[in-house]
Design a protein around this nucleic acid. Structure first.
Length: 400
DNA sequence: CCTCCACAGGAAGCGCAGGAGT
DNA sequence: ACTCCTGCGCTTCCTGTGGAGG
């Protein structure tokens, strides 16, 4: 009897799922990595990028390109779109144009940026172990021996430069001087307009031969984009105009982020579907806003390393405001209790800053005059949620 | 005005993992 | 088997600092 219960429950869910009509015609259209056939309000940028890269089709050199714009303004989509078309065009005259895309923030290190690049040109390289120079050498020799033209797109390039330096970029811009055969064009994409200051002048001049600026979408433009996509993603008359307007308004209120707007619409649809509603309405959008935030937090909480979890637990589980010293004291006791070596105060300050950056706590530096300078630390999330997520962690579970 | 607390946060470097070349 | 890479988490050592109390 007891054993049958979960079965029945599942059966109920599945039967229900079968019986309800899906609201989506094609859910993938709302995913952030989907590249639509048409990119509205970006014609100017597409033309500019196309013109900059066109010389490659008659085997001439092209300008390196710099693309600026806030997140979700279509930089990546436009770059991928144009390069896809370029690759297609290059097939017929059988030009060896390869397109290498890497997001330097996702890649994380210089090594992995080169690793991505090697993969894209069909060169296999171990994912760790080699010296940077060695990978670089292999890539250039591959480009030369196969006489490749490589268009290297470096997304969120500001991350790489800020974390390391512009050395790698400098090397890449110089590759063409060293290669008698083959060619590398670089497209840098950055969210940060001010990051040029981090570049040395030689790299800057070589990289920003041509610049394209992506301005944020207006709420009106977002509305048009969403309504276009909604037509492909959902069946007719599912999404109300009001909910599209709300999605556009919510995403537009920050800085015209189309990615967020599309996420919001997709999740709203999922919420409505789960409710077995026949339309996506404003209230589904409002639930979706909360759900997206909640999901993000749960993901972050799960992936926290043990000591960060311990710290977050001390901060959320005890009452009132905390100073770094208090938190450290409490945290040390907790460590002793579960027989784990505690980290040094220096490392703990670092972890607290990271928790702050993740938006899980607020840490504000305050001065108590004679009584020193410290951080005033406050949790931003509910104890209940933390407890729920941490209870899945074996070590954490023992102190909950 | 000066002092001095209780930290913040930068710099350097260590030990380890994971891997290549020889 | 040995040396040489890089990244990562962490420690050690350090200098910097806002403002209450003297």
């Amino acid at each position: 009897m007891v054993n049958n219960k979960p079965k029945d429950l599942l059966d109920e869910i599945f039967t229900k799922a079968l019986s309800i009509q899906s609201l989506y015609k094609d859910r993938n259209v709302l995913r952030s990595d989907y590249i639509p056939l048409k990119l509205p309000f970006r014609e100017k940028q597409i033309v500019a990028m196309g013109e900059a890269l066109a010389p490659l089709l008659h085997k001439s050199k092209c300008s390196n390109l710099f693309i600026y714009g806030k997140p979700g303004t279509g930089k990546t989509a436009v770059a991928k779109y144009v390069l896809q078309r370029l690759e297609e065009k290059a097939l017929t005259p059988n030009l060896k144009i390869k397109f290498a895309y890497t997001n330097t923030r996702v890649a994380g290190t210089e090594y992995r940026v080169l690793f991505d690049m090697a993969q894209s040109i069909g060169l296999s390289v171990p994912f760790t172990g080699l010296a940077l120079n060695e990978v670089f050498r292999r890539i250039t020799s591959e480009i030369e021996s196969s006489t490749l033209t490589v268009v290297l797109v470096m997304d969120e390039i500001d991350f790489l430069i800020k974390k390391y330096s512009d050395d790698l970029l400098y090397e890449l811009t110089r590759v063409n001087e060293q290669l008698p055969k083959g060619y590398v064009a670089i497209i840098g994409i950055s969210n940060d307009l001010n990051f040029k200051e981090f570049l040395n002048p030689r790299v800057l001049s070589s990289l920003s031969e041509e610049e394209i600026i992506f301005s944020p979408y207006t709420a009106e433009e977002l509305r048009a984009i969403l309504s276009d996509r909604a037509k492909i993603a959902f069946f007719d008359n599912i999404v109300t105009e009001a909910s599209i307007n709300l999605c556009a308004a919510l995403a537009g209120s920050e800085h015209g982020d189309a990615r967020r707007a599309l996420d919001l619409l997709r999740v709203s649809g999922e919420v409505a579907e789960r409710e077995c509603a026949t339309k996506v309405e404003e209230r589904h959008v409002r639930i979706a806003v909360q759900k997206i935030e909640q999901d993000r937090i749960v993901e972050v909480l799960k992936s926290l390393p043990l000591h960060a979890k311990l710290l977050l637990w001390t901060i959320t589980s005890s009452e009132g405001v905390h100073s770094t010293g208090e938190v450290y004291e409490y945290y040390s006791k907790l460590c002793q209790k579960i027989n784990v070596d505690e980290l040094t105060p220096r490392r703990v300050t670092m972890l607290i800053s990271e928790l702050d950056l993740l938006g899980l706590i607020v840490a504000k530096i305050i001065s108590k005059g004679r009584y020193g300078r410290t951080k005033q630390i406050n949790p931003l999330i509910q104890l209940q949620l933390v407890r729920e997520v941490f209870s899945e962690d074996l070590i954490m579970n023992s102190i909950l």
